[in-house]
């Protein structure tokens, strides 16, 4: 994507210093949080599959910061940062990754199934494209109740090849729902490059089939994502119409911790790392006089504290006791789970 630096500077200048500093802090928090989670995984504190979103911070922070309190967010299995950015307590996220009772899902969900209904973080889901249909449902409920809420649905490039994606776009348009489809195009569905599996490689063009307004943004530019998402959410809210944003980004790490990364070159990864969202943003903030190196150091110290607190909290939280927890909450009310 060609970058118009003048336009970029103008976009940056339209935001308050507080907001810009907040974006930096949140991206950095998510970066350091994920790095710590990776470390905890190698120390066997975190089990199962682990999908880190290092590299994608500008995309999800920019998009989620466009939402207002009360707005619904649905996510995928690469969702730790999505949850944190939507207001979920990092300590409870870490506790969930550790499988502890103080986790967002009482240790039953793990990395792929965080949830916080109070924050309207409506969950991480492990079936590609599955949660897009759920997002149609909350958006429908908002229209049904004549509230002013918007739903945002995160999904990857891979999900756009799934039938549920197409059914959901169609239904959202037919029913005129306030729903922002947010495609995180990190260019690989597991090990499959977009051009190997998708007939159309610019994902936003798929929205045209359903007459949904759509645009593609630089997913490494937090301001570009935020501005596009804010405009999309405003339109969705006011006009009761779905909107589609494709943010082109890159995950530095493998699909999961088990990914050897043989499907892409080291040079390609290096090239994207040179465009790092946080580094690039810092550079722009310095140039614009919106922050100093000391500010960044202060942010580093603060997020280090938050991450450490999260680890301590998770470590201190008890393991769920199967005798108490195993059969709870399969149903609401007095339904026998099983007589076995």
């Amino acid at each position: 994507m060609a970058i118009d630096t003048q336009a970029r500077d103008k976009a940056l200048a339209s935001h308050s210093q507080d907001e810009l500093r907040g974006l930096h802090h949140l991206m950095l928090l998510n970066r350091r949080f994920e790095e710590k989670v990776g470390e905890m995984y190698t120390r066997a504190k975190v089990g199962g599959f682990l999908h880190l979103n290092i590299g994608e911070e500008a995309t999800f922070v920019g998009a989620i910061k466009a939402l207002q309190p009360g707005d619904y967010l649905f996510s995928t299995y690469r969702e730790h940062g999505h949850a944190i950015s939507h207001g979920v307590d990092p300590r409870r996220v870490m506790a969930e990754l550790f499988g502890r009772v103080d986790g967002t899902s009482r240790g039953r969900g793990g990395s792929m199934h965080l949830f916080d209904g109070e924050k309207r973080f409506m969950g991480g889901y492990a079936i590609v494209a599955g949660s897009i249909a759920l997002a149609v449902g909350t958006a429908l409920a908002s229209v049904y109740r004549e509230t002013n809420e918007v739903t945002m649905s995160f999904f990857g490039d891979g999900a756009t090849n799934n039938g549920t994606f197409h059914e959901s776009l169609n239904l959202a348009k037919v029913w005129k729902l306030p729903l922002v489809f947010l495609c995180v195009n990190n260019q690989y569905g597991m090990g499959s490059a977009v051009e190997r599996v998708s007939a159309v490689t610019e994902m936003y063009r798929k929205a045209a089939a359903y007459d949904i307004p759509a645009e593609r943004v630089d997913g490494m530019d937090v301001i570009a994502v935020l501005d596009a998402s804010r405009a999309a959410a405003a339109r969705a809210r006011e006009e009761k119409t779905p909107y589609f944003i494709e943010a082109v980004t890159y995950r530095y790490r493998g699909h999961s911790m088990a990914d050897p990364g043989t499907y892409r070159s080291k040079e390609e990864v290096e090239e994207w790392r040179r465009r790092d969202a946080i580094e690039g943003f810092r550079h722009r903030l310095l140039e614009a006089g919106m922050a100093t190196e000391q500010d960044f150091e202060a942010d580093e110290a603060d997020v280090a504290r938050v991450v450490l607190e999260a680890v301590d909290f998770a470590d201190a939280s008890p393991e769920p006791d199967p005798a108490v927890e195993l059969r709870k909450d399969v149903y609401v009310g007095d339904v026998p789970v099983s007589w076995r």
Partner: peptide
């Protein structure tokens, strides 16, 4: 799926 989402809401 939409029903599940609406029920969640």
């Amino acid at each position: 799926g939409a029903a599940v989402g609406a029920a969640l809401a």
